[in-house]
Structure formats: structure tokens, C-alpha cells
Amino acid sequence: MTDKAEIYSSTAVHMIKRGFITGIPIMLGYLPVAITYGVLAKQAGMTLMELTLMSVMVFAGASQFMGVNMIAVGTGTLEIIIATFVLNFRHFIMSLSFMNQLRELKLKWKIPLSLGLTDESFAVSSINKDEAKMEKGAFFYGTIISIAYLSWIIGSFLGGVLGDVIPDRLSQSMGIALYAMFIGLLIPSIKKEKKIAVIALFAMLIHALCIQLGMSTGWAIVAGTIIGGMSGIYLLKEDVA
């Protein structure tokens, strides 16, 4: 009995450690972006409490930047909320994929893991799919998402308190961080399975095309993800799924 309990807890600790190591790139990418958000939100006239609360309750970078901009120029409440819905709707598609990957987990795990889904936490979690089948795998994903969430909240708060602490040129350079992380996640998968490159390139093409047609970024990413993903129906074999 105690043996079993020990194995149980050591597996959980092991998964938390692995989740932590896997989640570090998100922390690296989020902190400077969150600090910038905090600075801009403060300049837009939000209080420290409001700007931190937004990070706690919304936890979606791009839409928070947009929201702050719209608050700054005095856009109506309803308009801000509708724009947020459009911009974040892609998370519905990502969550559908992520929850299918985590099908074996109990609902009490699925709910918090889905609520903590962002572009970045989804990207890192979904690329590391083996843990979904492992014992205590939920701790792995829970740790990744917790790191992302805490980095985002702490960064926002720091930005609001400290103001512009990161030198301009450095913070501009850090704008590449999350893109580089996405690339760093995608390339190893492509090295394993070349067809994945076709899926990703197809999605890029659709996204770019939709932008050319005048679609908003939010819908263009949704279209790129859904239609790009459809190529996987033909390209991927069942064992990859």
C-alpha cells in the first residue's frame, strides 16, 4: 500500500519536473510580453488592480493588447467584447484538438487545462503528446499551463508597477521570442515526419491568403488552422493520431 503510494507520488513529481523544464520557453517568451502589456495598460489609464485582473481572468495576450488599445481610444464595451471573441475563437479549435488528445483524463482535469489554453500553452502541450498516455500525465500538462499562467500574471503586474524596465531595443528584439518558440516546436516534428511541413505550410498559405482577402487576423488564423488541418486527414496515418 505504502509502496504503491510512493510510486504514485514519485511519478507525479517526475511529471511536474518534466512539465517545468518543458514550460520554460513559455516563461521566457511571456515575461517580456506581459511586462509590455502592463506598461501599456497603465498608460491607457487602467489601475494596477484592473490590469492584473485582466491577465487573471482573460489570459490571452493578443486580445489583452487589443483591449487596452480600444480602452485607450474609448471604444464601446460591447465592441471590445465582440472583437475579443473573434480574436480568441481559435482557442475553441485548439481546445477541441487538445481535449481529444487528453481524452483519457478525468473531466476535473480537462476543465482547468482547457481554461488555461493559449496559443503558446497549446503549442507546447500538443507537441508533447506522449505524456497524455502516461500515468500522471495530467501533472505534466498542468505544470506547463501553470508556468504560463503565472508568468503572464506576474509579468503584467511587474509591468504595471515598474513601468518600462526593459530597454526599448531589447524589448523590440524580444518580439521574435514566441515566434521562435513556435518554430522550435515545429521543426523537430517535421524532422520526424516530413508531411507535417506540408500541413504547416498549407496553414500559413491559407492565413496569408485570408489576410489578403481582407479578413481580420482572428478569423484568418481560425481558417488557416481548420483548413490547414484538413490536409492532415489525407496526410496523417492513424498511428500519428
Binding site: R90, L186, T225, I226
Partner: peptide, 11 residues
């Protein structure tokens, strides 16, 4: 659904 992560990364 299993292709979505790669498509999302691309987009």
C-alpha cells in the same frame, strides 16, 4: 484534430 497543432503552429 491531430493535425491541428501543426496547422496552428503554421498559422
Amino acid at each position: 484534430l491531430s493535425a491541428i497543432p501543426y496547422a496552428a503552429l503554421g498559422a
